[in-house]
Design a binder for these strands. Structure first.
Length: 206
DNA sequence: TGATTGATGAGCT
DNA sequence: GCTCATCAATCAG
């Protein structure tokens, strides 16, 4: 457990690639939220890539607005938005003016699990962080945490490298979940062996 | 298990 | 007003 805490953040170049590449590369990495000297940690097990101007389902498809402004900037920052009653967290990928991002859909709880249970008001560990709205609730992530630099170790939200090497054959690709446009693009990625991915499964794309 | 539906709030298509 | 990158409860089988 202590070796997890010595992990370092990933460099900005890690995020300055196309979003599907970043989405796959983020699997297995550690999402860390610091609050009151406590660290909530989860291992990323499910992501989705959004392609910006070529992708009808992306928030940036309509062009720059006040809400999606952060997507048009540098990679490696959080994009937190609310949907219905809940929040979702993306990591900005690509280059400035190429508004692409990676949605973190599910993590495996690693540390401060009791606090996550309190935040979610449940004791079911498998149901704490297996969805984008759920993991934000468990981690206490809200819209005011939009635009945080996850490559800066002093940030409130950071992503750490991990000792777990996720190989390509451990990753399952499928279509994205919960969207009404561009449903069929194979842009959802998850660790096939994880029991912490979100419940609704779509047909895998081999 | 899988499908369906209602609650819910911010941003703008 | 209408649209959602959601969730939890409900019901059919």
């Amino acid at each position: 457990m202590s070796d997890l805490l010595t992990s370092s953040t990933l460099p900005r170049e890690f995020y300055s690639r196309n979003s599907p590449e970043v989405a796959k590369a983020l699997l297995g990495k550690l999402l860390v939220r610091k609050v009151n000297g406590i660290k909530l940690i989860g291992r990323i097990v499910e992501t989705e890539a959004y392609l910006g101007l070529e992708d009808e389902a992306a928030h940036s498809f309509i062009g720059e607005t006040t809400r999606n402004r952060i997507l048009f900037g540098e990679a490696g920052y959080t994009y937190v938005h609310s949907i219905h009653r809940y929040h979702c967290i993306d990591i900005v990928a690509g280059q400035p003016n190429l508004p692409v991002s990676v949605l973190i859909r599910a993590v495996e709880p690693i540390e401060s699990i009791e606090l996550m249970k309190q935040n979610r008001n449940t004791t079911d560990e498998k149901n704490l962080t297996n969805g984008p709205g759920k993991l934000c609730q468990a981690f206490g992530i809200t819209r005011i945490m939009n635009g945080i630099d996850v490559t800066d170790d002093s940030s409130e939200i950071v992503i750490y490298e991990s000792d777990l090497n996720v190989t390509d054959d451990a990753i399952i690709t499928s279509s994205r979940i919960g969207i009404s446009k561009a449903k069929d693009l194979p842009l959802r990625f998850y660790i096939g062996s994880s029991s912490y991915v979100s419940k609704s499964q779509t047909k895998p794309v081999v």
